[in-house]
Nucleic acid binder design. Sequence first.
DNA 1: CTTAATTAGTTTCTATATGAAACGTACAAT
DNA 2: ATTGTACGTTTCATATAGAAACTAATTAAG
Lengths: 157, 157
Amino acid sequence: MEAPPPHETCPITRLLEIVGDRWSFLMIRDVFYGVRRFDAMQKHLGISKKVLADRLRRLQQAGIFKKVPYQQRPQRFEYRLTAKGRDLFPVLLTMMRWGNRWLDEGNTHVLKLQHQHCGEIVEPELVCSLCKQPLTPAKVRAVMVPLNAHTGTTDET
Amino acid sequence: MEAPPPHETCPITRLLEIVGDRWSFLMIRDVFYGVRRFDAMQKHLGISKKVLADRLRRLQQAGIFKKVPYQQRPQRFEYRLTAKGRDLFPVLLTMMRWGNRWLDEGNTHVLKLQHQHCGEIVEPELVCSLCKQPLTPAKVRAVMVPLNAHTGTTDET
DNA sequence: CTTAATTAGTTTCTATATGAAACGTACAAT
DNA sequence: ATTGTACGTTTCATATAGAAACTAATTAAG
């Protein structure tokens, strides 16, 4: 990448305004794991109840979590991912890959991924949606495009 | 994914212990952009000098940034990415993709990626390193494996 | 020679966010 | 009637962040 695009409108800035704190990504990860209830999350993460309640509210408002009832009397809710939330999966996988590659000090076991499609323990790999080649810093340039443009080469009326 | 692996040893937890705050990822992004100096970062991000100095120290200690001199008298340094830091590129790209897809309110322009290999505006896509099929939540299971195991199917001596 | 400008911080002080613990509430079980 | 469980809120002490002033080394200007 070269040349800094405006900070305010950068999609990474906008994402981090919602989930850029110590807990949000961990909560989203936990919901992927199946840890979806207030108490379970609180115990699993060791987060304070106040901050947990606060982040749950925020992630709901952001449309990442939705609150769904799992029992009546007393009515209780758990937190599920919306489509928007589920679409953060690639972010978690790339984080996991990096953590495994660079931060394995003192571990007896590592968290790996098993791909149901091929059955193997695999690594996530980030490729170009068109030519399927790896997307490396040197091969990629960030460009600002008008919002209504298509992704194709031509641009006539 | 199903069943919560231990929180403490999760690679995502470990990553977020280093870069899980409002600024670290933005600083790393800025260094990718070419914004590598104290003042430039401070002005581009609108971060306080205290926190900036603090994060720069932390990211150096974590081996993500390195401080390299760019002039003598007075000696001045800029911050560059190490290999470990550069390897966070896929995390930034997946964040960017999500931000573009879900957070485009009130934008006239969007930050997109141009792939030098094919010349087109592309999206990053996360695929299996072995079978090259997309890695979706439903098709992936998180498993704990002993640190010395290989990724292959066989496991004889 | 003095003064201003540049770059990279540090210090100080105030505002905000976090965490721990106690409390509230709705129900179920004993 | 009391205890237990799940899901929070309130209160208060502490930690972190931000704004502004200050330091330091050096160059450039007057």
